[in-house]
Amino acid sequence: MKLNTNGNVYTFCYAAVMVIIVAFLLAFVASALKSTQEANVANDTKGQILSALGYDKAAIDVAAVYAEKVQDNVFENGELTPYEGNFNTTYGALIKNGELHVFTGTTAGGEQAYVIPVVGRGLWGGLWGYIAVNEAKDKVLGTYFYHESETAGLGARISEKWFQDQFIGKPIFGEGGEVALTVVKAGAAQKENEVDGVTGATLTSNGVAAMVKDGLTAYEDFLGGAAACPDEEECPACKEMDEKECGGCDKACDKACESNNVEQ
């Protein structure tokens, strides 16, 4: 017997059965693979943090090196407390809610560093990254950037090493104490806190610039309250010192002075 494949009943049944089969198949695959995928994502995130610290994540055992070198902390009420919960893989919502994660660790070169997660938007989708800063919290030691769906060969090049390595050694703050680290047009970087963008990907480059600025600004309390800064009583003296001696912490100093003056 030959089926009448043009009948209404057949068409409806075919569509219904097909949808049910495909739905079950997809649901089954998704749930069966979920835990493996999550482990991969967590491991990759740890790799990205290590990458910002200057390790080659393809060449090392990410989980082991991370466990040895890096500590996840939360910045609260002016101090870092070790974070005990489950490892997070996205930080956008956490930063918005004021849960500021700071990773402490040592770079591949053996330097003490703080790693700060940053989140932003590119041309087509989200961007994220990790910025490692030195112990004095005024210079970049390394970065890692990645993207959801930037154009391959153009915006996607922000994930390449030459782009990320440009940030190394750049000062974070400008003269006024604001976050001045930025990305400019390709080939136009002149000032010491400017970095070349990607040719043909101006909007993605602008996205990185905004992400770096907003991200670091969100951590201003952490970065500005530099440990090397003189405490409140010494503050007027700090003002008279020139910037180098003061370690570029005059902004925190100003703040401290302000509160001092208010108290007085």
């Binding site: 494949t5 043009n6 569509a15 097909m18 495909v22």
Partner: peptide, 14 residues
């Protein structure tokens, strides 16, 4: 041979 002619594009897409 089983695909109904009128919804073949949808079936292909699925």
């Amino acid at each position: 041979k089983t695909i109904p002619n009128r919804i073949r594009i949808i079936v292909q897409l699925v």
